[in-house]
Amino acid sequence: MQSAALQGGFAHAPIDAAHAFRAALQAMARPGLVQRVTGAQPPAPLSVAAGVLVLTLMDRSTPVFLAPSHDVAMVRDWLTFHTGAPLVAADRAVFAIGDWLGLSPLGQFAIGTPEYPDRSATLIVEQPGLERGMAVRLRGPGIRDHVQTTLPDVPALQANAALFPLGCDFFFTAGADLMALPRSTKLEAC
């Protein structure tokens, strides 16, 4: 392990994590709303926002899947040192990190069970920019009337939403920005 993997964690873990979680909570509560986060300096290709989510939410009890885009030694070492999360195959992952291509198809991830829909994977989708992709209108819990945004693959996300109350939940990250899309959100291409 390179010593660089030891760098880039939260400077004040309880405080930084508290601010980061508030941003993640607001994002998940209000789909499509972009939040800016700080505090992590993860190794490339992990974005700051993805790094902050890693430090805030993951630990030994959350198996993580790294898509090919992010399955590099530096990221593996950084993740292991800072969280202790086991690296696993897609079907066993509680969290998955990667670009959209690397995380597709969504069918490989846990969607929960009818009795326990919470036992589903949360996908952290790294993007070059949150404005990239297909224009889409979101409706549902957390959204007053509707909100306009862009997402990488609307049909696949619509298929995921159709599984409700089962399905995966998403954070889209780019640089220090993050946006969430829970399975409860209905998508209309526009």
Binding site: A18, T56, L57, P141, G142, R183
Partner: peptide, 27 residues
């Protein structure tokens, strides 16, 4: 005590549950 009493591992566990709770409202 740690900030807000609970240790960080406990807070992470609760935070993950809160996010899933928001994703499936009422469950």
């Amino acid at each position: 005590y740690n900030f807000a009493y609970l240790d960080e591992e406990t807070k992470r566990m609760i935070r993950r549950a809160l996010l899933k709770g928001l994703a499936v409202p009422g469950y």
